[in-house]
Design a protein around this nucleic acid. Structure first.
Length: 441
RNA sequence: GUGGGUGUAGCUCAGUUGGUUAGAGCGCCGGUUUGUGGUACCGGAUGUCGUGGGUUCAAGUCCCAUCUCCCACCCCA
């Protein structure tokens, strides 16, 4: 059998999966604290849903049966490449049973058939929250997204994250005022300011047919950043005007005011953040690690007005963000900055004295488990040294010895070597040893 | 899809201008230690040298093809 890694399909060791699960638990708790309801959608969607207008042209993994009968025809199913498109389909489908504004969180694997590289995988977790309204959705939700992101990212052991926000209408208004017909290519180019620098961006804009004067304004706008409403004034000072620009500035100003109480530096308006996805219509978000900006966005999202208008006339505007939990983990594992305190849930290894005493060992183990203490009984009566070594190799903190012939049981903390008498019905490990912990270093 | 790199033990790697039976460290297993680990010492196992072809008396080493993985572009979490 052929073994070996598949590029872009990461598999973690138990101690890494423990970290991953801990972070997923944190996300779930945080999302629920903000009132988002859980859903899960199927892993596959009809290709026509995945490739609908507004979706990205991601490379989609198509599903087919190995021994499909001749003439069975292609059912046209593909694995989802994000959670927003399936969610839009879900909302349109269950519209009658949902209460709006509908807030949901969804933590699932997604698949993209792209070339993998650092921070980018073909199979990875996305953790999404979205709010979706009927006909309209309050701008308040745009601001709330920043608040949730700030809270969630702060709860993850990944260091400081700066959330960059912008509003597509602001950029679109400016570009239209400058006479640009097709704004999306300009947005994509400006989005690369950080990466390739203003001179390269200038060249690319010129290739798109922008006049030198217009390019100056586009670049000047792209350079604007700030944490408060000063950015709105700075944009007005560019001297362009357009109805869409006014709308965008109102929204951006609202979001900045609504987030004014968050700690300084956590949120910044950044006028070159555009996001490549073409379905965003208003506020856009992009979170970067302060320590590792080169990793790319670790959370991102935006407002969309049309995406969920699937199969009906009703308009379902929404706003949502996605957290790149796999990207964060890949980075953390690569630099060994997140580790589990042990590589198994087991808190106590019950040593096996001899074959006659298996029953006694099981009784002790059951008593511990009944009180929520994870334990396992060693499988054969080897020398105690071997059994302790097994516990040590997995990071199991305690070894339990059943007392012989009426003697008391004892439990040994193998880190300190301390061994004390104990009763399986009452003994309690320190709270920090009950479950594996995530350690940051 | 485009470009560049890579491939030898479970892991990290060495292997001379082609030349006997392919090595080291770590890890693993056993022992010193007749049930209480981590250190130390002693011993042991492990390879289709990515794969297929070719050149040669002789290929891990040279040539061709192919695959894999890594990095960058595109785009994105």
């Amino acid at each position: 059998m052929k073994t070996g890694p598949l590029s872009g399909f990461p598999e973690w060791l138990p101690e890494q999966r423990i970290v991953e699960q801990a972070l997923l638990d944190t996300l779930r708790r945080q999302f629920e604290l903000f009132g988002f309801a859980p859903i899960e959608t199927r892993a596959v969607e009809p290709l026509e849903v995945l490739t609908q207008k507004g979706a990205t042209d991601k490379e989609i993994y198509v599903l087919s049966r190995l021994h499909a009968d001749e003439g069975e025809g292609d059912k046209g199913l593909g694995l989802h490449f994000d959670l927003t498109v399936p969610f839009a389909r879900y909302v349109a489908q269950h519209r009658g049973k949902l209460a709006f504004p509908f807030k949901r969180y969804q933590i699932q694997k997604v698949w993209r058939g792209e070339r993998p590289q650092k921070g980018r995988y073909r199979e990875f977790y996305q953790a999404d929250i979205d709010v979706i309204g009927q006909e309209t959705l309050s701008i308040q939700h745009d601001a709330d997204m920043v608040r949730v992101l700030h809270s969630v990212m702060g709860a993850l052991p990944v260091g400081a994250v700066t959330i960059h926000i912008n509003n597509r209408k602001v950029l679109e208004g400016i570009y239209r005022a400058l006479g640009v017909e097709d704004v999306v290519p300009v947005l994509r180019t400006v989005d690369k300011l950080d990466k390739i620098g203003p001179e390269k961006v200038r060249e690319e804009l010129a290739e798109l047919g922008l006049a030198p004067g217009a390019i100056d304004t586009v670049l000047a706008a792209g350079e604007i950043r700030g944490a408060d409403e000063g950015v709105v004034e700075a944009i007005r000072a560019l001297g362009v005007s357009h109805p869409i620009l006014d709308e965008g500035l109102d929204e951006l100003g609202f979001v900045l005011r609504a987030c004014a109480d968050l700690p300084a530096g956590s949120v910044v308006a950044d006028l070159h953040i555009a996001r490549g996805l073409d379905y965003y219509t208003g506020t856009v978000y992009e979170g970067l690690l302060d320590d590792e900006p080169g990793l790319g966005a670790v959370c991102s999202g935006g407002r969309y007005d049309n995406l969920a208008a699937m199969g009906g006339k009703a308009k379902l505007p929404g706003v949502g963000v996605s957290i790149g939990i796999s990207r964060l983990l890949g980075q953390a594992f690569a630099q060994d900055s997140l580790v589990a305190s042990r590589q198994t849930p087991t808190c106590v290894l019950v040593a096996l004295d001899n074959d006659e005493r298996r029953a006694a060992a099981q009784v002790a183990a059951s008593a511990l488990r009944a009180r929520g203490i994870a334990c396992e009984v060693f499988d054969r009566p080897q020398k105690y040294g071997k059994q302790i070594k097994y516990a040590d190799s997995k990071g199991i903190p305690f070894v339990w010895f059943c007392g012989d012939a009426g003697a008391a049981d004892t439990v040994k903390d193998i880190r300190s070597g301390e061994q004390v008498e104990a009763t399986a019905d009452t003994w309690q490990p320190p709270a920090e040893d009950l479950h594996p912990r995530v350690l940051r270093r």
